[in-house]
């Protein structure tokens, strides 16, 4: 489910984007894996993740199916569910993801996951050298690595680099380029804050791996007139 390989951006722009996730394999280590995935998320919370995934109904940020005008316009809408609710939704075979926006939290969490010894497969999606470094600090070596070689083919059909930085944070393509462009425009016009626009986008990522903290930073750069990164 977690599709995080091809997040667009320079190495510098990946410095606030770290994902750690656990997966069970059917018939191998799936028995009791829901409880282990919950335990993973429970420990992740100690390191202040910016998003969580693993619930069968979506990530931490999600839409509301029964809004009413009172909630929508006269009260403060809730844009995220409680991590406790998400943990309860985890079904077998268990999987879960935690997104961090700083290297220190990532490294400390990798060490904590090693110590937890859940027996589930644990993967990190980030700058490969940062992950290797985190493993070394935690006293072990990684097993396998998968490199992203980027995009090929009709790259003329892709939006600019800033939009790609936002949309590729949902690897399944649920955050559309037009919606990201709309959010950039609304932020520039002062109609919505970068933080709220990030939450709007995060709701479309049902795996909970969209990084709203990184999105906020990208939107603030747009607001401040920083030139968009080059596209593909």
């Amino acid at each position: 489910m977690t599709n995080t390989l091809h997040r667009y951006g320079s190495p510098e722009s990946a410095a606030d984007d770290y994902i750690v996730f656990v997966m069970a394999t059917k018939g191998v280590n799936d028995e009791g894996s829901e409880a282990k995935a919950r335990e993973f998320l429970k420990v992740a919370l100690e390191y202040r993740p910016v998003n969580l995934g693993g619930g069968s109904q979506g990530g931490l940020y999600r839409p509301t199916s029964r809004l009413n005008p009172f909630i929508a316009y006269f009260t403060s809408r809730r844009h995220a569910i409680s991590p406790r609710v998400l943990m309860q939704e985890i079904e077998a075979p268990g999987h879960a993801a935690a997104v961090f926006d700083n290297r220190e939290a990532f490294e400390e969490f990798v060490a904590a996951v090693k110590k937890m010894d859940l027996g589930l497969s644990v993967n990190a999606s980030a700058l490969v050298e940062d992950t290797r470094c985190a493993c070394r600090k935690a006293g072990f070596q990684p097993h396998s690595v998968e490199y992203s070689l980027g995009f090929r083919g009709r790259t003329d059909r892709l939006p600019d680099g800033r939009v790609l930085e936002l949309t590729t944070m949902c690897g399944h393509g649920m955050v559309s380029a037009s919606y990201a462009q709309k959010m950039i425009l609304m932020v520039k016009e002062g109609r919505v804050t970068p933080e709220r626009a990030s939450q709007y986008m995060a709701k479309f990522c049902s795996c909970g791996v969209f990084n709203p903290s990184r999105a906020t930073r990208v939107l603030k750069e747009a607001q401040q007139g920083v030139p968009a990164p080059l596209g593909v």
Binding site: P11, G32, T131, V145
Partner: peptide, 21 residues
């Protein structure tokens, strides 16, 4: 000539734990 910096790394912490595995 490929340039790459990002990727997914399997930390190798999984093990067989089902009783029948």
């Amino acid at each position: 000539g490929y340039k790459f910096h990002r990727g997914k790394v399997n930390l190798g912490l999984g093990r067989r734990s089902n009783p029948a595995a």
